[in-house]
Design a protein around this nucleic acid. Sequence first.
DNA 1: CGCTTTTGTTACCGCGTGTTACGTTGGCCT
DNA 2: AGGCCAACGTAACACGCGGTAACAAAAGCG
Lengths: 245, 245
Amino acid sequence: MGIPRLLVVDDDPDMRSMLTQFFQQNGCIALPASSESEIRSHLTAGRIDLILLDVMLGDENGVEICARLRREQDVPIILVSALSADHQRMAGYEVGADDYIAKPFNPQLLLARVRAVMQRARRTPSLAYRRRTRTFQFDGWTYDGKRDEVHSPEGYLVSLSQRETALLKVLLANPHIPLTRDEIAVALDVTGETDKPEAQGRAIDMLVGRLRSKIEANPKDPQMLRTERGIGYLFTADVSVDDNA
Amino acid sequence: MGIPRLLVVDDDPDMRSMLTQFFQQNGCIALPASSESEIRSHLTAGRIDLILLDVMLGDENGVEICARLRREQDVPIILVSALSADHQRMAGYEVGADDYIAKPFNPQLLLARVRAVMQRARRTPSLAYRRRTRTFQFDGWTYDGKRDEVHSPEGYLVSLSQRETALLKVLLANPHIPLTRDEIAVALDVTGETDKPEAQGRAIDMLVGRLRSKIEANPKDPQMLRTERGIGYLFTADVSVDDNA
DNA sequence: CGCTTTTGTTACCGCGTGTTACGTTGGCCT
DNA sequence: AGGCCAACGTAACACGCGGTAACAAAAGCG
C-alpha cells in the first residue's frame, strides 16, 4: 500500500509542526491544518487517510467539526484533547470519532493508535481507500471528479492542468468565502512539507490568471473568480455537489 | 517441488543481507524485502514458500502485517523479533504466525524451524505450495496468470514482454495507490539479489511508456496508468481478482 | 557466432509551473 | 481633481520533470 496521508489539525503552531514532523519521520505524509475550511480544502483536493483533530481550536470546536465531517463522509478521525475528562471522551465517541487521545500523549502510543485506526478503516470496504470523487456544478460549468474533467456550459471539454484543477477544487470547496493567497497555497500544497515560513511569490496570482483565462467568459472582467483587493480571491458561483459517483 | 523460495523481511539492511546470504548458502532462494507493499508484490509476482517477517519494521508492525496477510492467504509465516517477551510471543501466534523466533537466534535452529514449518505446510493440502496463479480483470482487460497472457477488451491477445508483464502485475497488486519509481523498481526485482545501492536511471519511465503503448487506448493520454508528477505512477483501474485456477 | 528481441541509457524536447519585470488599476490622501 | 503608491494582471523567461526517439547493451536462439 502507499504512504499514509494524515491531516494534523491544531491551532497551536508548535504542536502542529511537532506532530507533522514526528509523523513525517515515521514515514507518513503529514499535512498541517488549523481550521475547518482548510480541512475541507484538503479533503476535496486529495486523498486523506486520517485526520488528527484537536478538540480545542481557538474559535472552533473540534467535536462539532468532527460531527459535521462525519455526517458527510467517513474519513477516519482521531480526536486529541488536553481534557481527559470522561464526558468529553464520550462526547468524542458519540460524535463518530474513531479514537480519542488525551494530551500529553506518548508518541509511540499515538502512532500505534493511528495505525490501528487506519488498519480498521482499510479492512472496511468503504471509500476511505478509494479516491473520493464528486461532481460539482457551478454557473453552468461542470467539474467531474471521477474523470477529473471540466466542461463548459456549452458542453465543451476544457483541459486544465493539474495545478489549475487543484485550485478549482479548492475554490469549489470554499465558495462565497474570501481566501487569502496563503490559505490557497496551503490548501494546494498536497505535498505539504512542514509549515513553511511564508515565502512564495506571485505563483498564486499566475495560477488564478491561468484558470481565469480558461473558465471565465471574459477573463479581463472575471465573474466567478473575483479578486478581493488587499485580501485575496473569492469564488462567487453557487456550487452544487453531486455525490453519486 | 523445487528449491524453497523464502522472503526475508527486515528493515535493517545488514540483517537482511546476512539472512538472505545464509539461506542462499543453504540451498534456498532468499529474496529480501522491507515493507508490506514489497511483500505483496512478491506474493503476486511469483511463488513464495515462506515469509520470515521481522516484528519491528521501522514504520510498520510485523504482527499487524502478519495478521493482514493471513486473513487473505495462507503463506507460511515465521515472525522474528528482538523482544522475547511472552505476551509478544502470544500476539504472534494469535495473529496466525506459524512460528516465532527471538533474536539473537542460532542459525541452525532457524534453519530447522524453517524446514519444519515448510514441511508442515506441505502436508497441509493448501495452495501455499503451488504457484499462485490468479486472473485479473481491469477495465475490460484480462490478465490470465495461468497462461501469463493479456487480452484486450475486444478479446485480442496482446503480447507483453517479461518486464512489462511484471510491471503489470505490480500495478494490479497496488491499484489506486501511487507508487514511486523506487518502489516499482524494488517490486520488479523478483530476481532480487542483494539489496542494490539504488542507481537506476529512467528505466522505469521507459517501461511504463512501453506498457502504455500496448494497453492504453490512447497512450498519449493514459487513463489507467497515470503519472503522478513529482511522485511516480498510479494505476487507476478497478481490479477484480479471480482465484479459481 | 550472427541475428533478433528485450531492456537500459542518453539526449532532446515539450509542458507545466514559478519568478521577474513591467504595465495597469484602483484606493486614498491632500 | 489630481497624484501617489501598493496591489494586481500578465508577458516573458527560467527551470525541472517526464515522454520518447535513437542508440547501446544484454539476453535468447538458431
